[in-house]
Amino acid sequence: MRQLEALLSRLARDRAALQRPVDISPRTPNTISTKFNAADKIERQLRVDGHRNWGFVVYRCTYTSDSAWELCVQRINASIRKTMSFYNGHDLLEEGCFKFTVIADASMLDRVTTQAVRRHFTEWCARMVHEEQGSREEIESRRQEASPWDWRLPLRYRFCIQVDEASLQSVISEDGEGWVKVIKGDWESTEATRQQQQQHETGPEMMAEDEGEFTEDEDDEEYPAVEECTEEDVGWVKVQLNVMLGFYVNQRDPNLWHITYRRPPDVVRE
């Protein structure tokens, strides 16, 4: 009789498991589905990429106060941990899995533009991706099947964070409105891209001959200059600290940059 009851009980459990929705998150089974759980997304991205760690590359671009900087870093880390606690993703913050890399050099980075940070970040990524994640063969041996947009580099090597004086002061203030700059590493201005295309199609001699002629692109709307850029997309955004991790993780989908983008000085708040 007891064996029969045990068998029936096991069958009931198996049936319940089969009927369980496939998008239930094991981290937050009663609150957030795996589609919206940032920790689950990070875990999936690591498996797809064959990478062993994830995290943020942060550029220190202000050197007015070391104590203020230390407080700023503490609050950024605390915000990350608070968000991961919400998603029950503490395991992804363990040593060897999570990397919080600060790049600081006053002689090179003090008060520099986002474009200068982007150039350095691009060079840094070229050097560090295999040093951090292993050889190409090791990465490929760990990879799992990718989704259509997973051909791009993982987020750690596509986006970096810049903290300048204004950002630092917002983070260490007590009003809860702290923000950081999230820089898109592969951004290029529309104008630069257009010139490259024209040069490729016509060559430098034709470019010189056509100079000054009107084209339909010349009446594109201009915006107030942000670091001398008058295009709508300037390649970086101000992101409020408490949504930074969620914003960052969602950029895996390349279409979401244009959906979530807010032109500075506006701040991404949700």
Rank of each mutant, 00 (worst) to 15 (best):
70 E>D: 11
193 T>C: 08
176 G>Y: 03
106 A>G: 02
233 D>I: 11
189 S>V: 07
151 W>T: 04
114 T>V: 11
114 T>P: 00
12 A>R: 10
187 W>M: 02
215 T>L: 05
211 E>G: 08
170 S>M: 06
267 V>L: 00
270 E>I: 04
259 I>Q: 14
210 D>R: 15
137 E>T: 13
48 V>Q: 12
137 E>Y: 11
7 L>A: 14
129 V>M: 14
208 A>Y: 07
267 V>A: 04
239 V>D: 00
235 G>A: 00
211 E>Y: 10
64 T>G: 13
68 A>S: 13
5 E>S: 03
150 D>L: 08
36 F>C: 12
256 L>H: 10
224 P>V: 04
143 R>Q: 14
255 N>H: 14
88 N>Q: 08
56 F>E: 05
214 F>C: 04
72 C>K: 05
33 S>G: 01
60 R>P: 07
28 T>W: 03
184 K>N: 08
25 S>T: 03
25 S>Y: 09
102 V>Q: 00
46 L>R: 12
222 E>D: 06
87 Y>C: 05
141 S>Q: 06
55 G>L: 01
253 D>V: 06
213 E>M: 14
225 A>V: 04
265 P>V: 00
99 K>H: 01
152 R>A: 14
130 H>Q: 09
245 L>R: 00
59 Y>A: 00
54 W>I: 06
133 Q>T: 06
196 Q>C: 10
139 I>F: 07
147 S>C: 12
27 R>V: 06
75 R>A: 03
237 V>I: 13
15 R>K: 11
125 C>S: 11
265 P>N: 01
5 E>Q: 07
197 Q>T: 10
232 E>W: 15
123 E>P: 03
13 R>H: 08
33 S>M: 03
38 A>C: 09
234 V>T: 07
263 R>N: 07
93 L>E: 05
177 E>C: 09
145 E>Q: 14
227 E>D: 13
27 R>N: 07
254 P>E: 01
67 S>C: 04
179 W>I: 00
220 D>M: 14
132 E>P: 00
80 I>M: 02
37 N>L: 03
257 W>K: 06
266 D>M: 12
256 L>S: 09
244 M>V: 00
130 H>W: 00
57 V>L: 09
214 F>T: 10
11 L>N: 12
96 G>T: 10
216 E>N: 12
21 P>N: 05
135 S>P: 09
149 W>P: 05
1 M>W: 12
128 M>T: 15
105 D>K: 04
107 S>Y: 05
174 E>N: 15
27 R>P: 01
61 C>P: 02
3 Q>W: 13
103 I>H: 08
267 V>I: 15
247 F>Y: 15
173 S>N: 07
91 D>W: 07
115 Q>T: 15
147 S>T: 13
